[in-house]
Each structure stands twice: as structure tokens, then as C-alpha cells.
Design a protein around this nucleic acid. Structure first.
Lengths: 300, 300
DNA sequence: ACGTTTTTATAACAGCTTGTTATGCTCCAA
DNA sequence: TTGGAGCATAACAAGCTGTTATAAAAACGT
């Protein structure tokens, strides 16, 4: 009378209601007829009313049972859906990933990686939030996001970071005389107007150090925060630039040419995630995918 | 890996997610901590991913588990609702009853019986369908309705009927000289214009037989199908009538007076239901209530 | 109406689920 | 380092869920 309803009983009732006989219901459920018989007699005892009536040879749910069947159906459907979702999660076909990244990644490299990743994972959804590096760090600490892509990261106790060095290249518009060179160094850029990142960035410091070492003056033309902006400006003939090969690759099809820059001044990316918050398997999977997508551009 | 999800496991997961500790979840569920521990370790094994993470002393559902929890919550809610509904059915507080009746009942006696019946059965709903007796019979045979109230029923193999004889009374407007009589008989109505039911009805036949036996002429004024129509006409002073006491009672407060009619010519009601279709308990309950409501008006 | 066949109910039993208690492990805080 | 809180594990009891065997009941065909 007070024992809880069991799923198996509901399944049995539905199967009999669907098939009109316990024998067929049993084979539908893949069990024997006496098992069904007892499941239903137990359920009937517990509920306190008759579940089935005989009508010209068929077993038909009683009016009381019919009243409950729609809800039973829904519960069983939802259980089936839950099972399916669980399996999808196990097989990494379902889940949600929140990614914070530099604005440049949101438009250039990340979308294609996400697209590849989602292609065979229909149940997975992704949030991409572009912002400044400081904000990305905050988000990692606050555990608002699962994964972050940033640069110039000095480390933080609450953040797990994996550093990736990306090769840098010199970019110039089509037809520029630098196209004749195998590699480009500071001495090749003497007098060339240069578009570069902000002077307080690590990347600019490394670049100007290289010029300094070779005793070449760096002709600063434009300062910008994003590599993609530099690409656009170079495309329009406003100068040349040294940027991450990753961004240069995106612009190769749009008429931007590039050559390896020497000496090597890696663009330092950091793949970060909250260290306190355990990552879901799908997140780890994605981070792995993302790291792999960077392999062709890694230095060493 | 292939064993089905069990409700108990879902309950345990939800309880731990809610309370942040297995110990508290266990007491919430009214079981011991090791039971919860194993339920969850089983579930984790079956699903193939971690369900819980430790976060500064609390157990927190993993991202994967969080993804499933809303659905789990809904399933558990629906199970609780189903249990509640089942108990309501057992206690006759839920269900649905389809009633077919003569038009007169739909407006006069039935509504108050239904209202009383539903008063303490909040989950019960009722359909009332008024129509002609022949149609009511069809509905019973077709099992479209659970219960029917009709008259002049000759019986049918597919229909279970219970006959109820209702006393008949002579009705007349307030101030009519018949108010002086204890009972009214044909001789009292000599020359009075009489409003009566259709000539082919059993009730009219019984009435005219009574007049014939006492050798009194029946002065027919208006013929109508329904007793309630007769009441309205009598109220307006168009004559007197002999009708079921049941209908007369409804009009007592509206200025219609009545006296028992002698000889007794019962109005024959039939309470019918499909014999092949098993009645729900709530239906049987209602039929009983309805029959009881007729008791004050029954003849013998 | 009768015997045959189909279907459902019951019984006895095996294995798994779900609870118990007892106890060990781990982590954190005094 | 020690104690306490909380979780995991083990061993076991009871109950659920399945089995086979068989009885009982209903449906069906002559």
C-alpha cells in the first residue's frame, strides 16, 4: 500500500495496454509471461484498484488505468530520453562548453575548430565569449567559463594554464618586394613602416628587442591591439607587420603574404581553465582538440 | 553499461546534489549513508563518467551530472505526481465520469447531486450530456458514456439497468383551490385543463388509465415532452399537471405547489450503464450517490 | 456443449537490488 | 598528531525480478 511505484511495473502496464495481452507484452519486454503477471498483480495490489479488464479476448486497461496511462507514457519516454542523453554524454556527443577567448580568436581560428569539433557531436553546444585577457583571467578564477584562450598569462593559483608558443611571421601585401626573401629579419625591415601591437605587450617587447639586437631602427607606423587589425591594415598597404602565423594563415586566401620572421619571437598563447572546478570530459576533449589544431603553428 | 537507470539512483543523485553531502542525502532519503554511497557508485559506473566532485568540503555534481539534473528532477516530480494521482484514484478523489441523461435531469436534479459528489473529490471531472432516451440507449450500447439516466427503458442485453420508481404529484400554481386537498385524484381534476406528457409515453398511458378507471374525462390542454416544461406552464396558470415529485421539488421554491397523486402512478426512471464495459470504481460510487439522492422521492 | 488451445495465475527457486551494520580510509582542523 | 566528519567497502538480510513448471481459466472450433 505504501511501497513506491516501480518503473518496471509501469513498463509492464504500458506494454499490456499497448498489446492487449500479457503474453505479447512479456515478449515485448523480453521477459516471460509470469513475470509480467506478477508485476501487474503487485501493482494492482499496491494501487488498490483493478488495472485490467477482459474484453472479447483482449486485456484492456481499466478506466482508472487509462486515466494514468498518459502520465506513465511520459515518464517512460523521459526515462528513455535520459538514458539516451547519458549515453551521449559518455560518448562525448552531448554537453556544453563555455569558452572565453581573445577577440582575435573568436573570429579567426576558433570558429573552424569549434565547427570541426561539433560536426560529429550533435548534442554538444558551445558558448564563445570574447574579451580582454584580464577579463578572461577573472572568468577562469570565477569559474564562469570552462576554457580560456589568452596570451601573456603570468599564472594564478586558481588557474591551470598550458602555454603554447606560436611561430611569428612577417606579413606584407601581395607584390611586396619582401616576397623574394625566404625569411624576414629586422635588417630587412629597416625603414619599412611597421604595424605592431601595443608597446606594453610582451610581443612588442620581444620584437623591439630583436631590432635592437640587430641595431636596426623600428619605424613604428600604427599601434593596434589585435593581430587581425594589423592584417587588415597591411592588406591596405599601410605597412608590414610581424604577427602570429595563426592569424596570418587566416588571411593567406585574402591576398596577404607572409614569411617566417627571424629571430624567432614566439607569440605566447595560454590555454587556461579553472583549476578548482573539475573539467567535464567533453571540455577536456575540446581542449585537446584545440591544442591539436595549434600544432601546425607551434614553435618547436 | 547496459543495465537500465534505476529511479533510486536518480533520487540519490538529486538528494546529494541538493544537500552537498551523502550523509545528509541519506537522512533525507531515510536510509543510511553506505546505501547512498553504493547507489551513486553504481550509477557512476553504469553511466561511465564521474557524477560528483569535492569542492571545499562539499560534494558538487560534476558538469556532466549537472547537465542531467534538470531532466532527473522532472522525472522524479512526475513520479511523485503519478503516485499522488494514483492515491487520489484509490481514494476516489480523481477520475472522470461521463453521464448521459434526459434533458430534464441535466438542469434540475443532476447538477446538485454532481456538485455534492464533487465537493470532496477535487480531482474528479464529469461530463454531462443531455439527450433523448433513444440516444442515451445508443450511447450505453456504444460505451461512449459511463452512466445514463433515462425513462421507459425496455432492457437491452448490452445495458445494465436499475429501475427506480418516483412518486408522482399533481402540481398547480399558488392559491389554486387544490391546495386544500391532502391528495389529488382524477375526480379532483374533472374539467381542469391538464398539461401532460406525450400521448405515446408510458407515463401518460398510466395517467389516462387512472382517469378511465374513475370514469373521469381528462381535459387535455398542452402536450409536452418534459416535466420541467409542464412546471413552467403550470406556473403561468395554463393548467395543472401530474409529474414526477422529483421535478416538482425543484419548483417548490418558485411558487409551484404539489400534492400526492392518487392512485399512485410511478414515474419510471432507469439508471443504466454499459454491461460489457467494466465500470470504474468512481463511476459505481457516483451511481450509488445518485441512487441515494433519489431515495426521498422513491415510491415504496 | 464439449474438448482443444491459448492465455493467465501460482509456486518454487535463483540472482540481483537495496537496505542494514561494522569498520577502514582520508582529509581537515584543533 | 590526533580527533572528528564524511565517504568507501565488506558482509549479510530482505525483497524485487527474473526463471521454469504447472494449474486454472478463457477463448475457440466443431
Amino acid at each position: 500500500m505504501k511501497s513506491p511505484l516501480r518503473l518496471r511495473q509501469l513498463e509492464a502496464l504500458k506494454a499490456v495496454a499497448d498489446h492487449g495481452s500479457m503474453t505479447r507484452a512479456a515478449s515485448e519486454l523480453g521477459i516471460t509471461q509470469p513475470a509480467v503477471s506478477r508485476l501487474l498483480s503487485d501493482l494492482g495490489d499496491e494501487l488498490g484498484f483493478a488495472l485490467l479488464d477482459r474484453r472479447d479476448g483482449r486485456l484492456v486497461p481499466s478506466q482508472e488505468a487509462r486515466y494514468l496511462l498518459p502520465d506513465i507514457q511520459r515518464i517512460l519516454d523521459m526515462m528513455a530520453r535520459l538514458s539516451e542523453t547519458s549515453r551521449a554524454i559518455t560518448e562525448k556527443r552531448a554537453g556544453h562548453i563555455r569558452i572565453a577567448c581573445l577577440p582575435g580568436f573568436a573570429t579567426s581560428h576558433l570558429p573552424s575548430v569549434v565547427a570541426d569539433f561539433l560536426r560529429h557531436r550533435p548534442g554538444v553546444s558551445v558558448t564563445i565569449e570574447p574579451d580582454r585577457p584580464e577579463r578572461i583571467l577573472e572568468w577562469m578564477i570565477g569559474e564562469d567559463y570552462d576554457f580560456g584562450i589568452t596570451d601573456s598569462f603570468e599564472g594564478h593559483p586558481a588557474v591551470d594554464s598550458q602555454r603554447v608558443d606560436i611561430r611569428s611571421v612577417c606579413i606584407f601585401p601581395e607584390g611586396h618586394w619582401l616576397a623574394d626573401r625566404e625569411t624576414v629579419g629586422p635588417s630587412d625591415l629597416a625603414g619599412e613602416p611597421i604595424i605592431h601591437t601595443r608597446r606594453d605587450s610582451g610581443f612588442f617587447k620581444a620584437l623591439s628587442d630583436a631590432f635592437l639586437t640587430e641595431r636596426v631602427a623600428l619605424t613604428s607606423r600604427i599601434e593596434t591591439r589585435q593581430f587581425t587589425a594589423a592584417c587588415e591594415l597591411v592588406l591596405r598597404g599601410l605597412g608590414v607587420s610581424v604577427i602570429s602565423e595563426l592569424d596570418a594563415a587566416q588571411y593567406a586566401s585574402r591576398g596577404l603574404q607572409s614569411r617566417p620572421f627571424r629571430p624567432r619571437i614566439p607569440h605566447q598563447l595560454s590555454l587556461v581553465r579553472p583549476i578548482l572546478k573539475p573539467a567535464s570530459m567533453i571540455t577536456l576533449d575540446f581542449i585537446e582538440s584545440f591544442a591539436a589544431s595549434l600544432a601546425p603553428f607551434r614553435q618547436d
